[in-house]
């Protein structure tokens, strides 16, 4: 780790200016991913601007019935929030399925969204990785890629985004509020589904944010159907492990058919994957396993698994079916 300066930001404007003015600077939130990467040499900031004392540490009601989650709200506090638990259970479940109790007490909302891939080659600076050093090549494509992408990957990168929170927010049509060096005193709003990007030619960019952009809050829209939602994470251990695949979903029945449905997948792509094809296939259809399976298959029709992660296609399909069946009162298989 190289030596770095540490500053504690008093307000957002100063924080943004401090980072924007120094290409080697980074924001420090809970530190659970950044400090990890600094020890590994994956990140080498020479200035850390601590944003944990900024006044972004509360969850507040929005006019119209939504919630504004401050970027500094700790994952554990957000998961324990009564309003989140009753109105957006998918969000509480996603948070609780991530990391561990003692890490969730440190990790922040904004930092969780900006955590970086767990790809073993990305995390080991002695191996080539296009995400770390563009142009070096991708070690995972022909290497260890059991956890890697089956959707939306590029020849340059097959990494997946590890956040559970981001998957739930994508399903909920949440909006990420950002303050950047060019935003003056204002903020800009980015739909959660558009925050992260596919790797394409530039796997080094995880998100659409630029240097100095600071997430200040995440807005949850009022979404009555989210009261019936859930997050299901399939992983190699019963706890404290990253997803093989995960599914965030909410379903609203209108009479005997599905009126509205939201589905997002984790562990399958470089970004949380909103399953719009599956959603379209399900609207107006009866809630049964055959329909769920057909919809899941429609979503996964373009999947391009790698040598050692073909299992993710049936696993994602089956998990979608299992979650939707649970939400609509279908008996387990």
């Amino acid at each position: 780790m190289i030596p770095f300066d540490y500053r504690r930001a008093g307000d957002a404007e100063t924080a943004v200016a401090a980072v924007a003015g120094n290409p080697g600077a980074a924001f420090l939130g809970g530190g659970t991913n950044l400090v990890d990467h600094m020890k590994l040499g994956v990140a080498e900031p020479d200035l850390l601007v601590d944003v944990t004392r900024l006044p972004f540490d509360s969850v507040d009601p929005l006019p119209g019935g939504g919630l504004r989650i401050g970027a500094g709200v700790r994952n554990s506090d957000l998961a324990a929030d009564e309003r989140v638990r009753t109105r957006y259970p998918v969000l509480a479940e996603a948070l609780l399925s991530g990391a561990s109790g003692q890490l969730r007490n440190l990790a922040t909302t904004g930092g969780n969204l900006l955590q970086r891939t767990r790809c073993g080659y990305f995390q080991d600076v002695t191996t080539p990785c296009n995400k770390r050093r563009p142009g070096e090549g991708c070690s995972a494509r022909e290497g260890y890629h059991r956890y890697h992408a089956i959707l939306g990957a590029s020849p340059h990168c097959v990494a997946v985004h590890p956040s559970d929170l981001a998957v739930a927010l994508t399903a909920l049509d949440a909006v990420v509020r950002v303050r950047g060096p060019r935003d003056g005193h204002g903020e800009r709003a980015i739909p959660a589904a558009e925050l992260h990007r596919l790797p394409g030619e530039h796997p080094e960019w995880d998100t659409v944010l630029g240097h100095g952009d600071l997430i200040t809050a995440v807005d949850l829209p009022p979404l009555p159907m989210a009261a019936r939602s859930r997050y299901r994470k399939v992983r190699d251990r019963a706890s404290y492990a990253f997803a093989l695949v995960s599914v965030a979903a909410a379903v609203e029945l209108t009479g005997d058919v599905i009126g509205d449905v939201r589905i997002a997948l984790g562990g399958v792509a470089h970004k949380p994957w909103r399953a719009t094809l599956a959603e379209a296939a399900l609207r107006g259809r009866p809630p049964d396993r055959a329909e769920f399976r057909a919809a899941a298959e429609a979503e996964l029709a373009d999947a391009q698994p790698l040598r050692d992660n073909r299992f993710k296609v049936p696993m994602a399909r089956n998990t979608i079916v299992s979650v939707l069946a649970g939400l609509t009162g279908e008996e387990p298989r």
Partner: peptide, 23 residues
């Protein structure tokens, strides 16, 4: 030393926290 085992857990301002990933 990377928040992956929990042996460094203490109560930090009253809450359990890993100390290896905190400066």
């Amino acid at each position: 030393d990377h928040g992956q085992c929990g042996t460094c857990t203490v109560l930090l301002d009253g809450r359990r926290a890993t100390t290896c990933l905190a400066f």
